[in-house]
Structures are given as structure tokens and as C-alpha cells.
Simulated scan of single mutants.
Amino acid sequence: MSAPIIQLHQVHKSYGQGRPALSELTLRVEAGEALAVLGRSGSGKSTLLNLVAGLDRPSGGSVVIDGQRIDRLGEAALARHRRERIGMVFQFFNLLDDLTVRDNVMLPAQLAGMPSPRAGARAAELLEQLGVAQFATSFPSRLSGGQRQRVAVARALMNEPPLLLADEPTGALDSASAADVRDLLTELHAAGRTLVLVTHDTALAASCATRTIELLDGRIARDVQAVAR
């Protein structure tokens, strides 16, 4: 069996004296899976995503992403790991309003040291694939929510990461835009992308997840494989 792209073992995370955010959580995600993480507010969903992304560190246990034990990395190595191995999509897009769409998409590649001509060509390719090439020289504020989320996905894919993480990617969208983003994520998974989606959107989980886990009080309460479609 090939190594999993995500492997958490007995992960514990506390932020003080109260109930831990995650409690002895063990999780294995294979390359090519689309995992939806469900649960009420405070169940540990965002903490789990932050640990996988290397934005936070566990209080105990191990976090291995794409063969690299990231909980032991220093800050510089963690930042490099995120640039090269992780793409992230956020509920409120996190685009920079003073940069054009194209410059927003190019930013991760520029931070990674990619030459500008190559980064520009890659950005143009992604914007075309995601159906927003016509907005390349526009500023994010001129776009709809669904269009901004497509730009955010293009930015997340810029460095060709093996893992795409999405934190409530449809949470700030109207129903039509949410359906558009659900279709996009389904297409990305069908093309072989590994996805982890933290969401309250049961339609998103049903449409593109091959597996769903539900967190309750920092533990996995349910782990269900989707019926083959």
C-alpha cells in the first residue's frame, strides 16, 4: 500500500485549561481522496485543517503530510512546505484588493522564486481553465463571490500542490455561486486532486466527497465512505 498523503496519529491539541480542541485523533487520507469534514461549531474542524496545513502545531501526537512529519519542522521549513505542498481556499477568499486577479494568482509562485515569465504563463493557464481569464487585469472587488472563489482556487493551484484544503469554500456565497464552486471542486477531484473540505454545506459534501468524517468534541464520531457514483 502506498503511503497516505495525510497521516495524523494520536493528535491532541489544547489551547488552555478547558476541553481540548482535538483529542487523541488518528486519521489517514489516501492520495486522490476527497474528504469532507463536518461538525458543529467548536467540534475541532478548523483546528484539524490548521494542523494539516501547518498553520498550527499539535500539543501531542504526529502530523505527517505527503511523507513529511511537519510537526517537527522549523518555521522556515514549514513555510516552504506550505508553498510547495499545500493549496488553501478560504471562506472569504483572502485575495489582496490592491493586486489584480493575475497578480493575486501569481503571488505564491513569486514567493517560491519562480521566474516572472513562467509564473505569468502558469497564471494565465489557470485562469483560462477556471473560466475567469477575462478578469485577469481586474481587481477582486469587481468580481462576484463565485468568480473570486475561482480566482482563489487558481491561486491555491499555482504551485501545483498535491493537496488542496478548503475551509468553508461555499460559506460566503449565494446559492448559485455555491453550486458553481461545488461543480469546480468536483471537477478538480475527478482530475485527480486530493481534497480536504471543512464545511457545513451538506450539498458540497454529497456532491464531491468520496468520504465524510464528522467531528464531535475533538474526536471522529463518524467516518463514512461515499457510495460509488
Rank of each mutant, 00 (worst) to 15 (best):
G131H: 01
R118N: 14
L143S: 11
D56A: 02
R28I: 10
A152P: 04
R40M: 13
L49S: 05
M114G: 12
A53G: 04
V101Q: 03
F90L: 11
V52G: 06
D71L: 02
G32E: 04
Q134W: 12
G44W: 02
G44V: 10
P115F: 13
S23H: 15
P140I: 00
G113D: 04
G113C: 04
V64K: 07
T47F: 09
L48R: 05
T47M: 10
E84Q: 10
G32L: 00
G87H: 03
Q110V: 10
T100K: 13
V101I: 04
V151L: 01
R19S: 08
D97A: 09
G146T: 07
S43F: 00
F92K: 11
I65D: 08
R82Q: 05
A123L: 13
I86R: 05
P58G: 10
A121D: 09
G42V: 05
D56Q: 07
A133T: 03
D103M: 06
L111G: 07
L107P: 12
R102Q: 11
D66W: 13
R102E: 11
G145E: 15
Q68M: 11
P108G: 03
V153H: 04
R57T: 11
T137P: 10
S138T: 15
A53F: 04
A121H: 08
R40N: 12
S43E: 06
V29K: 08
A136T: 06
R80G: 00
E125D: 03
A123G: 10
D71R: 09
G87N: 02
L107Q: 14
R85F: 00
A31D: 05
L49E: 06
L107E: 15
L126P: 01
F139M: 09
R148I: 10
R19I: 08
I65G: 01
S41C: 13
L73K: 02
L22V: 05
V64Y: 12
A76D: 15
V89F: 03
G74L: 05
L99N: 06
V105Q: 02
R80M: 09
A53W: 11
R150M: 07
G74V: 03
A123E: 15
R83Y: 01
L107A: 14
F92I: 15
L96P: 15
V37R: 07
L78S: 15
S59F: 09
M88V: 02
L49H: 04
Q149E: 10
A112C: 04
L126D: 06
V89C: 05
A77F: 09
D103T: 05
G42Q: 01
V132N: 10
R82K: 04
R150P: 06
H81Q: 05
G32M: 05
T137S: 14
E24H: 14
N104V: 06
E84C: 08
P20T: 01
L99W: 02
L126V: 00
L51P: 03
A109F: 03
P20R: 07
V64D: 14
S59Y: 12
